[in-house]
Amino acid sequence: MTYTCACCDEVHDDLPDLSFDRPSYAADVPDDEFEARVKLNEDLCVVDDEFYFIRGVLKIPIHENEQDLGFGVWVSQKKENFETNLENYDTPDIGPFFGWLSNEFKFKGEPTLSLKTMAHFQGYGQRPLIELDESDHPLSVAQRNGISLDEAWKIVHEYLGR
């Protein structure tokens, strides 16, 4: 799909997903302490052997479009649920598990850190789908009701620094 963007008047191909490489809690650990305190790979993070996070995909439907706007986000997990995920990574037969959205960013001017979520495990090497608790937060409303393609591109440009 190509699209002429209302934000920059350029022609774009597919809408990119936006992602965070670590939970905000891990990003706050000083560089000189990071290696000793944080265990991090592309999908899992443990801070101070006490705080557990998994990476998932939060999707926002785009009106009249097959593609969603995807956010690669981190959510907190209880230690027991984190370990259940580790032991059953290739099966969708676990969860869903509660967690707190663990990335700080603004969505339509509102902070997102600590929104309530449910992680729905897909198994087979796929990251869990992250569903926000129903609320009046703009990100939750967008996930439930969808957004226009123009809104999606505006969000992408905002996060990619255009």
Rank of each mutant, 00 (worst) to 15 (best):
V29D: 00
P30M: 13
D31R: 14
E33K: 05
F34Q: 12
E35L: 07
E35V: 10
A36L: 03
A36V: 06
A36W: 08
A36N: 00
A36M: 10
R37D: 10
R37K: 00
V38L: 04
V38I: 05
V38S: 07
K39Y: 13
K39F: 13
K39H: 12
L40K: 11
E42A: 15
D43T: 15
D43W: 13
D43H: 15
V47M: 01
V47G: 09
D48M: 07
D48I: 07
D48T: 07
D49R: 10
D49V: 11
E50M: 09
E50K: 14
E50R: 13
F51I: 00
F51G: 08
F51E: 08
Y52V: 10
F53C: 10
F53H: 02
F53Y: 03
F53G: 03
R55W: 08
G56D: 02
G56K: 11
L58N: 05
I60D: 07
I60S: 07
I62A: 08
H63C: 02
E64I: 08
E66H: 12
Q67W: 03
Q67F: 12
D68E: 04
L69P: 07
L69F: 05
L69R: 08
L69V: 03
L69Q: 02
G70L: 06
G72H: 06
G72C: 02
G72A: 04
G72M: 02
G72K: 05
V73F: 04
W74Q: 06
W74V: 07
S76C: 01
Q77N: 09
Q77K: 09
K78V: 04
K79A: 01
K79L: 07
N81H: 15
N81Q: 10
F82P: 06
E83P: 00
T84R: 15
T84P: 03
T84I: 15
N85E: 15
L86M: 13
L86E: 10
Y89R: 15
Y89A: 15
D90T: 03
D90M: 07
T91C: 10
T91P: 12
T91D: 09
P92L: 06
D93T: 09
D93E: 08
D93C: 00
I94A: 07
G95R: 01
P96V: 03
F98A: 14
W100D: 13
L101E: 11
L101R: 06
N103E: 04
E104F: 01
E104T: 06
F105T: 12
K106N: 05
K108L: 11
K108D: 11
E110Q: 02
P111H: 00
P111M: 06
S114N: 14
S114Q: 05
T117V: 09
M118L: 13
M118Y: 12
H120C: 10
F121V: 01
Q122G: 12
G123P: 01
G123T: 00
G123H: 01
Y124K: 14
Y124Q: 15
G125N: 05
Q126D: 14
P128S: 00
L129H: 12
I130S: 13
E131M: 11
E131N: 08
E131I: 14
E131A: 03
L132C: 04
E134M: 02
E134V: 14
S135P: 05
D136S: 12
D136G: 09
H137P: 02
P138N: 03
L139I: 01
S140H: 03
Q143F: 11
Q143A: 00
Q143E: 11
R144F: 06
N145Y: 13
